[in-house]
């Protein structure tokens, strides 16, 4: 569904993407995990037509993003990182304008608007001005807007950044539901738990390069299953173990305080890049 080969991007002499290769299958929820400035947003911006690529090629559902830009754009919906709604228009007007831009006939616009407002639990706010909505509601409206024209691929760029944990979990549930309904999802995040919970596969990106791609379980499994964090003279040190028992037996002989926990994606990221995601 998404195919990327040798994608590069330079801003003046700065290399933002250093040759990205990836394939995302239809119906997959693919997470792009990396620290700020790693190249996550640049990748999404190129794939959705907001930014020009410097080299390489990419296609969405078989449509080359450079040679067939309009056909490629019809395949996707985008929820960008920043809120980009018309705050002086109502919820319904924002959706209506989007539907018109995508060439949807009036009857279909009305039907999809009603359905999607129900879907994101905003039906009662249809006539509210967007500026009266909270951050979480705005984010849900942006998701509804991105789905209005029934795209095959949904790009979510840091969809829960700045939201409180309760709202974040509601967005996660919504994203899972969208995937279940058949939409391919490409999601960028720097939240470890978001990638772990949502993704079928995760790509680690660091300094414009993909350093690993696999399922969350496989990536974490490279480190073992359990970890012990200890704070010593040289800062935080983490040891990894295949089983809880093994970790406990090692910890039994320790005098310093420690924390026993399950291995997470950040451990795998740290092992591969030498840095933390956040």
């Amino acid at each position: 569904m998404i195919s990327v080969r040798g994608l590069k991007k330079y801003y003046a002499k700065t290399e933002a993407l250093a040759g990205i290769d990836l394939e995302v299958a239809a119906g997959e929820l693919f997470a792009y995990l990396g620290p700020n400035g790693a190249g996550k947003t640049t990748t999404i911006r190129i794939l959705t037509g907001l930014t020009r690529l410097s080299a390489g090629q990419a296609s969405l559902n078989g449509h080359d993003i450079e040679k067939q830009p309009l056909a490629a754009k019809r395949q996707c919906g985008l929820v960008p990182q920043q809120i980009n709604l018309d705050s002086e228009l109502t919820v319904g007007e924002n959706l209506d304008i989007h539907g018109r831009i995508f060439g949807m006939p009036q009857a279909l616009r009305r039907q999809r608007t009603a359905r999607l407002l129900d879907y994101v639990e905003l039906a009662e706010r249809r006539d509210s001005l967007v500026k009266q909505l909270s951050g979480g509601l705005k984010r849900r409206l942006m998701i509804a807007r991105a789905l209005l024209h029934n795209p095959r691929i949904l790009f979510l760029d840091e969809p829960t950044v700045g939201l409180d944990p309760g709202i974040r979990r509601r967005i996660w549930a919504l994203v899972k539901r969208i995937q279940k309904d058949g939409t391919t999802i490409f999601l960028t995040t720097h939240y470890i738990e978001e990638a772990e919970f949502l993704a079928d596969r995760v790509a680690f990106i660091d300094r414009g390069r993909i350093v690993a791609v696999d399922s969350p379980a496989a990536l974490m499994g490279r480190m073992g299953s359990w970890a012990i964090d200890q704070v010593g003279d040289q800062g935080m040190q983490t040891s990894y173990f295949k089983s809880r028992e093994e970790a406990r037996s090692m910890a039994a002989g320790q005098e310093t305080e420690f924390t026993l926990r399950r291995v997470n994606l950040e451990d795998a990221f740290l092992a591969l890049t030498g840095k933390r995601v956040k």
Binding site: G49, L70, R74, C76, L78, I101
Partner: peptide, 13 residues
Amino acid sequence: WFIFEEFQAAPIS
């Protein structure tokens, strides 16, 4: 408002 991006990402000429 970053609304221009909504038009940039849309299939319009």
